[in-house]
Amino acid sequence: MAQIDEDDIILVQRGPSPTVAGGFYRSFVETARGLKTTLFKVFGETQTIQYPEEKTPVYPRFRGRHKLHTFEDTGLEKCVGCSLCAAACPADCIRVVAAENDPNNRVSAGERYAAVYEINMSRCIFCGYCEVACPFDAITMGHDYELSDLNRSDLIFTKEMLLAEPIERTPLRTEDE
């Protein structure tokens, strides 16, 4: 180990050492007081949710995995590849590369469309800014929060993945819950 320079050592003032009675009080009485709540809960109602057998229901406005939308009538993508979501995203996890629509083979309703649309779910902080920024309601936040994976690159969701109907695996909270 390297020599420690004398100047780098700072002396710290210690508190006065407790008396015998004080020490006993600290070790047993204060500890018991701290454990009071825990001890009472042991005998109360069970709080643990048995995930993954059981799942916490989410509120309707829960911000989970994103979804890209298409128009119901025409089937065209709502997203025009404007990149506003990417600009709004504080985690910088959206990548949009736009391209020009071919009038004979449209992808979106506007002049341009997103040729590449990727969200890096491992960076997303689920703030919902992208949803707010989108001028066409093309991207919304869904309910799925089960996004873990074994491989980081699998967490980069492509446009096809985001356009696909997500599997509904998270229960929605009912009115009275």
Binding site: G81, C82, S83, A86, A87, V96, V97, A98, A99, E100, E111, R112
Partner: peptide, 9 residues
Amino acid sequence: YRFRARPWD
């Protein structure tokens, strides 16, 4: 340059 990028890209 049409639709290639936005100023923040």
